[in-house]
Design a protein around this nucleic acid. Structure first.
Lengths: 190, 190
DNA sequence: GAGGCAATCTTGCCGATGTCTAGATGAAGC
DNA sequence: GCTTCATCTAGACATCGGCAAGATTGCCTC
């Protein structure tokens, strides 16, 4: 896909996004170069700028897409613990999105689309906390922070290669289930 | 400190490190420029390279220093829960170190000093897990991963401005104590 | 079907950055 | 006092992000 016959690329925005996600996943956000992405897509060096304004704009678009993907992943969760498993699964499936989402210095914080997507994802998490029943409810704000912290911490440590020894051959989501089980006790999340 | 009388700076390594930490804390690692740091220290643009080899070398040195600071902070902890509080306190006190430590793509992973410091800090955490008594011990590996995840997740979300609403005016370490309390139950960590 | 408009892409340019090389300076040890 | 070597300077080169001006083309309207 590095050459083309037509003057217009056709779907340059998607091509640049895909290439960017590939670079970020394998080499990290610091290695990302707009000119390199342009070369990969077979366009001139200034072409991507028209779709993303600048480097920060591209990263902001990636974060926005990430929050939308996360919101979609969380919406199908049956309960809070399942949401945690899906959170970890999302991080593993979309490591590039995840990395960019949680590095605010790479994004344009005031971007309205980013803020909206972020709010949608956050609302999904809040809904799962509100859906809690039983005697383990307590302060919803506190419970939400605790659940988010454990899932986010596990996912982050996982993507930074800090849990390699702890996995013991298990799939990440299974390992997270075991961790959540150790904290909340069997069946405590229902 | 941007000018000097002598040809030699005296402590350029420390000056560059301090300036770098300041930039990272306020603008993030992406905004870090070796030439800018050189200007702040009042030396030529190539001077920092002699102390850190290159940009990655500087960031690796910061990560190494961070792991040593973390190990020192954890060594005084009375128990596992206290270690968690100290982990969060470390992240708040040294946000620049913390950011760099957990972005492996910024570091030279094969650096022996980095690996050694990382191992020392990890050993401190493992010691606190091993010191657990009572009926909540279970699988030490699992307990360690759970404790690390909750503390690391809380710290990360805190530094990325995702817990602003949840703090409610409390100091971060107090808020973390409440979260840990909600998860483990009162006195469960002793 | 012809004309105009706006989106898309190209080309050229500028300042800034990381890194390499060769050379200047001076502190420390003999 | 002389040597040695770590430290710092000066210059050069390739690359990058961003800007401006112009070329190309899809699309809408009449």
């Amino acid at each position: 896909m590095t050459s083309r016959d037509t003057y217009h690329h056709g779907d340059l925005r998607r091509a640049v996004l895909t290439a960017a996600l590939d670079v970020i996943r394998t080499e990290g956000p610091a290695a990302l170069s707009l000119r390199d992405l342009a070369r990969r897509a077979g366009v001139s060096h200034a072409a991507p700028a028209h779709h993303f304004k600048d480097r920060t704009g591209l990263l902001t678009a990636i974060a926005t897409e990430g929050y939308d993907l996360l919101a979609a992943a969380l919406s199908d969760a049956t309960d809070l613990r399942d949401a945690g498993v899906r959170y970890v699964r999302f991080a593993v499936a979309h490591p590039a999105h995840f990395q960019v989402m949680f590095q605010p210095d790479l994004q344009r914080a005031e971007d309205p689309e980013l803020q909206a997507a972020k709010a949608r994802a956050y609302e999904r998490l809040r809904a799962k906390v509100a859906g809690l029943t039983g005697d383990r409810v307590g302060d919803p704000e506190l419970t939400g922070t605790a659940a988010w912290s454990i899932a986010h911490g596990f996912a982050t440590l996982l993507l930074t290669n800090n849990l390699d020894r702890s996995l013991g051959g298990r799939a990440p989501e299974d390992a997270f289930w075991a961790v959540a089980d150790a904290m909340f006790g069997t069946g405590g999340g229902e």
